[in-house]
Structures are given as C-alpha cells and as structure tokens.
Nucleic acid binder design. Structure first.
Lengths: 228, 228
DNA sequence: CAATCGCTTGACGCGCCCTTCACGTGCGCG
DNA sequence: CGCGCACGTGAAGGGCGCGTCAAGCGATTG
C-alpha cells in the first residue's frame, strides 16, 4: 500500500483530499505547515508528497527544494499562481506535477495515480508537451501548433490555451482561468477572459479543435472527432 | 556505479556537491587540498574529477597538469576567475569543462552527467562543441563561428550564447540565464541580460540563427530552416 | 599611474498587447 | 414571442516589457 503525505494549512482541504485518496486505496498522512511536512516526510518516507505552495513557517517551494536534495520522492505542488508553474515543474524545483487551485479532489487523485504509475515505470516521454487532437502545446519552446502548423500566440493567449488544453473537455470557469493564467491577485474584469478567448478562437481556425462556450459557466476545449 | 572525486578546500561546497551528485546516483569521494586530490585520484581511480582552482598545497591547475600526464580521466574545473578559463580548457591543461564560481550544484551535476555521457560514447568529434544550424560554439577553444566565420565575443556574451545554444529552441528565462552565466548569487538587475543579448545579436548578424524574444518570459535561440 | 576594456545600470522611447468600454447579437426563459 | 442577460467583438488608451545608448566604475594592462 502506497503512502501519500499531504501538506496544506487549510483543514478542509486536507480532509477532502484524505477522503478521496483513501478511497483510492492510499494511506494518507497530513501536515499543516511546511516544517511539519518536512519532519513527517523524513520520518515516514511517503511514496508521494502533495505540497501547497502557500503555507505557514516554510512555504511549499522551500520544502520542495529541501526535499529534492535528500530524495527522489515524487512531489506534486498545489498552486494558485500561474507564475509559479513553470518554475515548479521546471528543473529548478524538480516537482513532478502541479494542480492549480481551486481543484477537484478527483483531479488530484488522478494526478497522484498518474505520477506513481510513471515513477514506477518509465518517464518523461511527453515532458512539457500537452496534446489535444490536432493541437500541440509545447511550453518549453512556448510554441503551439495545429495540424503541425505553428500559430503565433501572445503571452496571455498562450497561457489561456494551455490551461484549457490541460483540461480538455472539462469546463473551466472564468474565475479558474483568471487564477490559472492571471494569478490569484488579479482584480480586473472577468470579461477580460472573453476577449482573449475570441482572439485564440480566431487563431485556432477550423481544424477540429475549438473553444466552446458553456453559457453561464465558462469555457471548455473540445476536439471534434469527425475531423481528420 | 560511477565514482566522482571532488576537490575543494571549502567544506560546505564539498558537502553540497556531494549531496547533489549522490542524488544522481554517483559515489562521491572528497579531498580538501591539491595533494590529497592527487593521492586519492591515483589510489581510487575515479571516473571523473572535479577540481577547484584555488586550493592549498597544490592548486587545481597543477593537479590537472599532473593528472593529464598520467591518465585520460575527465576533469571539470571550478574557477572564480574568468581569466583562468582560457588556460583551463586550452591545450595546456586539457580540462573537459569548467564551471564558474559561484555555481549552482545542479549546474555541476548537469555538466558531470554530460561529460560522462560523452566519455562513454568516446565521440571526440563533439568534444566541447555545441552546434545550432550555422552556429558553432567550441567552448574548449572558446571560439564561436557562424557560417564558418569567427565572431569575437566577450566573456559574458560567450557564456550567454553557449547557454542558449545548449538549449536550442527552448525558452530560457532571464533568471535561468543569470543563474547559468552569472552564478546563483548575482543580485543585479535581470535587465542586464537584455543588454548582453543585444550585443550578441549584433555580432551574430543575419545568418539564419538568431535570439528570439519571448515577451514576458525570456529568450530562445532559433535556427531558421529556410536559410542556407 | 594612466589608459583601456568590459560589465552594469539608469534613462528614454517605442511599440505591442492587455484591458476596458461600448454596442451588437443570440440564446433561453418566462 | 419578446425581454433580459450572457456573450461576441471592434476599437481605443495606456501600461509596460523590451531595445538601445551612454555614462560610471571596477579591474586589468602597459
């Protein structure tokens, strides 16, 4: 049986995650701040660690850095800030994956399962690349292609499309997109998202992948199976 | 399992490097001065040796020279002085690579891995040379050429271009470049990178290889496939 | 000791892109 | 069937990221 350590300062998040992860058959440990996380990680040697970035005493980034020097244990970060993401998954911190806040515990459980599977077997074949039908997003090169043809996207457009592509078929609210792409401290209009969606739609063209409006909720990226 | 010998008179540097290298799966030996390094190298026959230039009793340059007469063991030099670099990688000393102090241990680990990979292939053809389209960077001779024509680069410009060329097509942030080229403890402006990029661009000219700005992120080196 | 070189940084200006406003449109619900 | 609300989208403005120049400064060299 695999053991997961989850570190987050909010109790209801720890409880929710524990619930879902135990349902998946994992043993779950919890820590409510960075120092406790580090201690528990060293003492209990979990098979995977979930770290919130924002925590008291020692933040998740610091905990991650410290742990990385000591072991290869897979680490999954929770973050609300899009800015953190590249550093987290990049070489600097060496985390294995991240989940943007707010998240559904089911998604967390899915990622955990995926990471553990990958850690056991091989790894890194799709490093830094997200695919959705004819759409390919390579964020290391920061290039997006549809049907093999490059499309030029501006900063926000790229991040927006990447966020949607990572949740292919899943509806994302404007608030989720704002947090993922703009960061938690963005205080502008939610309608800003709409404008960027329009731009991205125009650039995506008609190649069997599109951003659909879910009226009253948000947007989702869908792949048309009928298209070649 | 490969064995690495690290020689540096500062204990915390030895410890830090040992940590990172062991994490990569190497057995690590340590020596705190030049004579000890030479002794250990002869007795234990490591697969690679990391030498600090400034050491008591016998400096790294001297150790390197001595070892070179006895074996082909790959040697990586650590130096704080930019001036040393030319001699280090030149024919006289024949070190396999260098890392400027201050360096990030992750950087060291990456170079070590690269050298060992190269040493296994025994491919002297790519020894110390990075290619990207018409651009060739021979960092052992510390020469850069475009379309076979040499271009004269200053220290920072050369290291900057090398860093970008080693990640051809991959976006590097200003922070990554600063850490790589300037060292981890550089507390200056990130805009410094921009100025050097401008200089390098000017010297690169228009030969089908260029440094592209990725707005809001950083820079990447791209090769124009259309150019001859 | 003076002269030179290379690195850094401040300043300035340009142009892109983000954001917002405004208005038009169509879907959905009463 | 018509009203209202949610969304699409064009246009404008200005913020700011970046390119570039040049001065200052520490280091090095003759």
């Amino acid at each position: 049986m695999k053991t997961i350590l989850i570190a987050d300062d909010e109790e209801h998040i720890r409880e929710l995650c524990t619930l879902y992860l135990e349902k998946e058959g994992y043993r779950v440990l919890a820590a409510e701040d960075g120092e406790a996380a580090l201690e528990t990680a060293r003492a209990r040697r979990p098979d995977l660690i979930v770290l919130d970035v924002m925590m008291p005493k020692m933040d998740g980034l610091e905990v991650c850095r410290t742990l990385r020097k000591e072991s290869e244990v897979p680490i999954l970060m929770l973050t609300a800030r899009a800015d953190d993401i590249d550093r987290i998954v990049g070489l600097e911190l060496g985390a294995d994956d991240y989940v943007g806040k707010p998240f559904h515990p089911r998604e967390l459980a899915a990622r955990v399962k995926a990471i553990l599977r990958r850690a056991e077997g091989e790894s890194r074949s799709t490093h830094g690349v997200v695919r959705a039908g004819p759409l390919t997003i390579d964020w290391q090169r920061r290039e997006a292609t549809v049907d093999g043809e490059a499309i030029s996207l501006r900063t926000k457009e790229f991040d927006l499309l990447r966020a949607l592509a990572e949740h292919e078929g899943i509806v994302m609210t404007r608030e989720q997109l704002l947090e993922r792409v703009w960061g938690y401290d963005f205080y502008g209009e939610t309608r800003t998202v709409d404008v960027h969606v329009t731009q991205v739609r125009r650039k995506l063209g008609d190649h069997g992948v599109s951003i659909q409006t879910v009226r009253g909720v948000g947007y989702k990226l869908v792949v048309d199976p009928a298209k070649p």
